[in-house]
Design a protein around this nucleic acid. Structure first.
Length: 495
RNA sequence: GUCCCCAUCGUCUAGGGGCCCAGGACGAAGCCCUCUCAAGGCUUAAACUGGAGUUCGAAUCUCCAUGGGGACACCA
């Protein structure tokens, strides 16, 4: 069992190379949960050492995404902290110093092989159906000569000197010991020609310097895991607890998420990018709950707030197997959490959607509407479909929909006229005054409530599906309701 | 191709040798409630990949096979 009394220091370390992904968000969530659970710190570190792939704005998107989700970090590029800087490009010298330490200890060496040579070698090995591995040319160089060439300014990289013999055993908290023969681990580049480190060095150095206690990262790192462990050991440092999280598979379960899947999801009103979630009408509570359960086994009662997750979280109950993402389940959690919102909260969240749809919003009115639509919403943007008619001056019912089931236009018109008669006679159209007389009419007419109320619904809301009729009428008010009814009668009479 | 990881209902998962003719959730089907749509309540169908062991006893431990996934960059 894991000890949760010691404050953990955990970090999420995304690279700003594209949109913030579900995978990053989920890692951040687990990081956050562990940090909060132990009274520790949650850190954001930006791994931007690949200048070519860095895209402007990506870092901001990550920070915005984390904040939108409510995963506020204690240390990071824009909030500072005692272990900064938190952007790897600002830590260049640190990595160079550490690479030198490794060289001096005999655990790394400069390599002068050109990309062209490497490329040729790679192709040859491929032709022989071998996996690529560095042939060790520069590993055999005399260290003094190598140092001289470096001093002369000759372009070079620095490679880690992986032991040739023996086995490396790395321990993953979820999978146990993972052993791999050293001959299968390449001499990876740890400092590139541009002087910046690769992940293999940078992450290890930073995790140590930032006193990270638990490394949570994607399972795609499993194959280089032994290398990383060797790097840490070469420095003589203590290892963090390593936790490799399962990867997300496409909804079909066949393969991991691709660009194509991202596009496909968009077409269905979903996204694998955090930045899209808000606009699609998802709320952080729903997204969080949904993500949390892909890779974390919770025995029962799986609807949880962030705080409840902190309460219940345990790294021991994380699961190692890959998980296919399931957007239908996102819908479920989103709807469930929407239903947990207070009237005021829901009103505030739904308001931007009405504004975006072009309605001029009245806060008092919206506050009355919110409770009516709450249990009907799967995503926030559904509010337009359910309640847009409240804000419209006129409503345009589809003529055919005004005709009740089993009746014709004439009969429907008669019912509408009768309804008009009943409602117009009332001094005030509130829920208590309108429903009884209308029910009484249904009784004596021998029609079904479905038929009568159906006509009324389409007449007044303009749609076949709406919140409860009489409450809706009360909110719309007598004048507007009667106007709409009258218009419906005219439509029916013309049919 | 090589190496590594994973394996319970369609999906996410509980399960750590007897409590399991396998539990929960989503989804599906049906019923109830009902002015529509929802929400809610109840019910049903639905899984331990296969084979060898170990054991009195295996979903649970071991091995093999199979299937799936990942990695094989001067990317992270």
């Amino acid at each position: 069992m894991t000890d949760y009394t010691k404050p953990a220091r955990v970090r999420v370390a995304p690279s700003p190379t594209g949109h913030m992904h579900l995978g990053t968000a989920r890692t951040a969530l687990y990081d956050y949960l562990l940090a909060k659970k132990t009274g520790g710190k949650f850190i954001l570190r930006v791994e931007d050492t690949d200048l070519k792939r860095t895209v402007p704005g990506a870092e901001q998107e990550i920070m915005d995404g984390l904040r939108w989700l409510g995963l506020d970090y204690d240390e990071g590029p824009d909030v500072g902290g005692a272990f900064g800087p938190y952007r790897q490009t600002e830590r260049r010298e640190i990595y160079q110093q550490h690479a030198n330490i490794l060289i001096n200890k005999g655990h790394a060496y400069p390599c002068f092989c050109t990309p062209e040579r490497l490329d040729k070698m790679r192709k040859e090995q491929q032709a022989r159906k071998e996996s690529f591995h560095y042939d060790g040319t520069c590993r055999r160089l005399n260290p003094d000569e190598a140092a001289r060439r470096v001093a002369n300014g000759e372009p070079h990289v620095i490679r880690f000197k992986t032991p040739k013999e023996g086995v490396t055993i790395a321990h993953d908290h979820l999978r146990g010991d993972i052993s791999i023969e050293n001959k299968n681990i390449d001499d990876y580049v740890i400092i590139k020609t541009d002087g910046l480190p690769t992940y293999h060095l940078a992450a290890m150095v930073d995790d140590h310097l930032m006193q990270v206690t638990h490394v949570l990262r994607g399972a795609e790192w499993l194959s280089t895991f032994p290398l990383h462990v060797n790097v840490v050991r070469a420095f003589g440092w203590d290892e963090p607890v390593w936790i490799h999280l399962s990867v997300f598979l496409k909804p079909s379960g066949k393969g991991k998420l691709s660009k194509r899947d991202a596009e496909h999801a968009m077409k269905d009103g979903y996204s694998v990018f955090i930045k899209d979630m808000e606009e699609l009408g998802f709320i952080p509570e729903g997204v969080l709950n949904w993500m949390a359960l892909m890779g974390w086994g919770v025995p029962e009662d799986d609807v949880m707030s962030l705080d409840e997750m902190v309460e219940r979280f345990s790294i021991d109950s994380l699961t190692p197997s890959p998980a296919a993402i399931n957007f239908t389940k996102l819908d479920h959690f989103n709807g469930t959490h929407i239903r947990l919102l207070s009237d005021a909260d829901l009103t505030a969240r739904v308001k931007p959607f009405f504004i975006k749809a072009g309605f001029s919003v009245n806060d008092d009115l919206l506050l009355k509407i919110s409770p009516l639509i709450r249990e009907r919403l799967v995503t926030l943007d559904d509010c337009i479909a359910f309640a847009g008619f409240f804000f419209q001056d006129v409503v345009e019912p589809i003529p055919d929909e005004l005709i009740a089931k089993g009746l014709d236009a004439k009969q429907s018109a008669a019912i509408a006229r009768k309804a008009y008669e009943i409602l117009s006679a009332l001094p005030d159209l509130n829920h208590q005054t309108t429903e009884p007389p209308m029910r009484a009419y249904v009784e004596q007419s021998g029609l079904s409530a479905n038929q009568v109320f159906g006509i009324l619904r389409v007449a007044i809301t303009g749609q076949k599906v709406s919140p409860p009729l009489f409450v809706s009428i009360a909110i719309i008010g007598k004048e507007k309701s009667l106007q709409r009814l009258k218009k419906a009668i005219e439509i029916l009479e013309k049919m």
